[in-house]
Write a protein that binds this DNA or RNA. Structure first.
Lengths: 206, 206
DNA sequence: TAGATTGTTAATCGATTAACAATC
DNA sequence: TAGATTGTTAATCGATTAACAATC
């Protein structure tokens, strides 16, 4: 079964499944079912079973899924059964907040290098991280084999940063800048845009 | 033409259209076309025309759309031709970063009140914002008629906070906690989950 | 007029849901 | 055995794309 054609929308739900399985585990569940999961996530049980079927068979008729086992399997599928080294570009307000946020590391995404172009910041250490000159990005990212990056620079600079990152070997970018990024096919980009979400919701307000 | 059945996915694209129109305006464009917009956003021109058709006719055959006019119309549709007062709940690392982020206010979403349950923080002022006791949430939110809120509390506390917010009259919630929120029908919830995005992308890494 | 682009309808594509035989 | 739940197929639903008459 080739994974190359698993719909992106299905892959996007796997982290939610994983999260929910952790919550079930914390609550003391040993087994669960597609129905239970669906209820907690807010989708149908059929969708969960169909999603999982893309990757194999993980349950037992009559009894459902073993929480721990399904958790491990999904973690493996997502490649989050290992740690990842992440580059952060941009150390303004947002970048600083992201670098201080412990949630990334707790889930295995370690922000190991940070870049900025401000001479005031370069070379300094803030809360354990050293800021490198943006000029050194190519050298450092490629020598450390970093595949994941977070962009937290102003919109006008984001496309340029993305190109440099991809050039240096980055294959996936989490982009906080409010611009569409155009990158080589095969490089993944995900967007975080809270303003867009607020605007979408304000549509429904009176 | 009833707007009550505009698909949510269409509403979700309007902020992107708006953003792109601003960029075009900044670059000096007076007119644009669905093709131009589509190219910049990465979707088809047909989709843009079809999306806009839900709300009226905004273009001219042969010449396309006037940038400024379409901008104003979409802003009006989204209700972002006015300012909104926003409540922020949770003043930990994330909440502090959000309250310091000027991007919300710049787009008309003003974080006017902040709540936390930590007695160490309550009553203090940080960068112009005063922190209120979580106990006062109902009173303050309802008396100020606040309809929009941002949740930045730990996962285990989020559902409880959401219920209190809705009780106090909040109709739309931007949720940074990694949990599904169950709220009354008619209350909108959007989720910000960078970890989920990173995990989704790591699926594609080797 | 000729070229360009809209708004809209029909065709296609893909995702979700319903249903059920298999089986624990 | 009886009840529960899986994995999977078929039916439904909804979103995207293609195509084109209308018209600036």
């Amino acid at each position: 079964m080739s994974r190359s054609r698993v719909p992106d929308i299905v892959v996007g739900r796997l982290p939610i499944y994983l999260r929910t399985l952790h919550q079930l585990e914390d609550t003391g569940y040993t087994f669960t079912s597609s129905q239970e999961l669906g209820k907690r996530i807010g989708i149908s049980s059929a969708q969960i079973r169909k999603d999982l079927a893309h990757f194999g068979e993980f349950g037992k008729q009559g009894t459902g899924y073993e929480v721990k086992y399904l958790q491990e399997q999904i973690a493996k599928i997502l490649n989050v059964d290992q740690d990842w080294s992440v580059a952060l570009v941009g150390f303004g307000d947002l970048g600083q907040a992201l670098s201080r946020y412990s949630g990334f590391a707790r889930k295995g995404f370690h922000i190991d290098v940070v870049f900025d172009q401000d001479p005031q910041k370069i070379g300094k250490k803030y809360h354990e991280v050293t800021i490198y000159d943006f000029e050194e990005l190519a050298k450092i990212v490629s020598s450390q084999g970093i595949k994941l990056a977070i962009i937290a620079v102003p919109g006008f600079a984001a496309q340029d940063v993305a190109e440099k990152l991809v050039e240096a070997g980055v294959r996936a970018i989490l982009n906080y800048a409010p611009v569409k990024l155009f990158v080589d096919e095969g490089v993944r980009v995900e967007y975080i845009d809270p303003i867009a979400h607020l605007q979408q919701m304000s549509f429904y307000l009176t």
